[in-house]
């Protein structure tokens, strides 16, 4: 999938991705010559098809997680299907970021089948940015930046 600014005869460049939470996706592309911006809007079925391929429009921003697609998409998985190996607290060394009570509460509402992966993604996100405490606001920002539909 590529976008061409016909007037400038230039390939448009990915600018921004948004997941409104209703199963749709919006991705903006800008012409590097004239600056014109167009938005790609996909319906839920089209969004799902792209997600099913395990690719992200706009590129990946986080390291792939084991069984990422399976854990993110299967709705009939056992809550206790997975456990983290010893010492697995997210990437890198040093003490992991803390979780605020509100963030813990929100994490607890995530289905158990995918919770471990979601937890690790937020931990990695916070560690990468030197964030000491994960709050719901941090989770919202991460979700938007990383394109974590439904997480």
């Amino acid at each position: 999938m590529k976008f061409l600014c016909v007037e400038c005869d230039r390939q448009m460049q990915f600018e921004e991705r948004r997941l409104p939470g209703d199963g749709t996706l919006a991705a903006a592309f800008r012409c590097p010559t004239c600056g014109r911006v167009v938005a790609l809007l996909t319906n839920p079925m089209e969004t799902q098809l792209v997600a099913s391929l395990g690719v992200k429009i706009g590129g990946t921003t986080i390291a792939p997680q084991p069984l990422e697609t399976v854990r993110g998409m299967v709705t009939t998985g056992r809550d206790d299907a997975f456990e983290d190996g010893k010492g697995e607290t997210g990437k890198g060394k040093g003490s992991p970021p803390a979780w605020s009570p509100e963030a813990q509460e929100r994490l607890a509402r995530v289905p158990g089948f995918v919770r471990g992966m979601v937890r690790r993604i937020y931990l990695d996100y916070a560690k990468d940015r030197g964030i000491a405490e994960i709050t719901p606001a941090v989770m919202d920002t991460a979700r938007s930046e990383l394109g974590l539909e439904g997480m």
Partner: peptide, 18 residues
């Protein structure tokens, strides 16, 4: 079979149509 709830079919999150 190691991942699914006992007796439940494999089901995916996604739009119901198509």
């Amino acid at each position: 079979a190691l991942l699914l709830e006992e007796g439940r079919p494999l089901a995916f999150r996604g739009p119901e149509t198509e």
